[in-house]
Computed example of a mutant assay.
Amino acid sequence: MLGDNLYLVIMLAGVGILALAVNYVITSREQMSEAKRDRLTWLSTQAEHTLHALAILKEAGCRQDIVDKLNQHAMALIEEISLLAPESELMTEVSQLKESSDRSRPDKTRFNSDRAVKRAQIYINFAEKLIIQMAKGGKMTGQLARTYQQELYWLNVSLVADAHQNQANNLLEAGDKQTALTHLRHAKAVLVRATAPQRQKQPRLDELQAQIDKLQPKRTWGGGALAESLDDYLNEQN
């Protein structure tokens, strides 16, 4: 009787251990599956944003070394996706997006609308943040990251100024000088406010000022020290 009870206890214990083992395996697989899904979701978002940013940077005429560095990051993301889900719909979508990004070429006419400019700014800002993350991850030096940040900042500023200048040129062709002048002034204001070296801004400012003066010539002041001082002040502001 005692032996039968002992056998029953051992059998129940064995069943319990087996149930725990099965439950552990199932839970582990579920956790791994969930972790894989979460990782793929993150990779999908990062790859999509990076590839869109690359297309924008190429169209805006960004420095090639910056494009190359971000392209390396995009390739690493795509490679991990191919390892985790090689035959998935996600892999197909990302591959198509990569091909589209690779075909992008410099074309600033793509930024002639407010919506296009705002979209470009979003992805240039994303690229700036990505550069910081890559530097923190040891993928580039801090000095190089700062240089790239400055380049992307100036690209962002130039993009907005170019858009206003292009719109002004289009309006001039349509005969709307007053609205064209407004856009030129906006372009100048964007450059004046930019925290970039004056030597970098000055050629663009001179170009814009020449266009502004052509549409609205400077006033001719009478002689006298006051007039000369005022004229000097206005020239300094320009």
Rank of each mutant, 00 (worst) to 15 (best):
L8Y: 14
V9Y: 15
V9T: 11
L12I: 07
G16M: 09
I17T: 15
V22K: 15
V25Y: 00
E30Q: 14
Q31N: 14
S33L: 13
T41K: 14
T41R: 15
S44N: 11
E48A: 14
T50L: 02
H52G: 06
A53T: 02
K58T: 04
A60T: 06
R63H: 12
Q72F: 01
M75R: 10
L83F: 12
L90S: 02
Q96W: 12
K98G: 05
E99W: 12
S101W: 05
R105T: 07
P106T: 04
K108Q: 03
D114N: 13
R115P: 02
R115Q: 11
V117S: 09
Y123D: 03
I132D: 04
Q133N: 05
M134F: 01
A135L: 02
K139I: 06
K139L: 08
M140S: 02
T141V: 01
R146V: 06
Y148H: 01
Q150S: 15
Q150E: 14
Y153C: 06
W154Y: 02
N156D: 12
L159E: 00
V160Q: 09
L172H: 01
L172W: 02
D176E: 07
A180N: 04
H183V: 08
R185F: 04
Q202G: 09
Q202V: 12
R204Q: 11
R204G: 03
D206W: 04
L215N: 04
R219E: 05
G223Q: 11
G224H: 04
A227N: 02
A227I: 01
D231T: 10
Y233I: 12
Q237D: 05
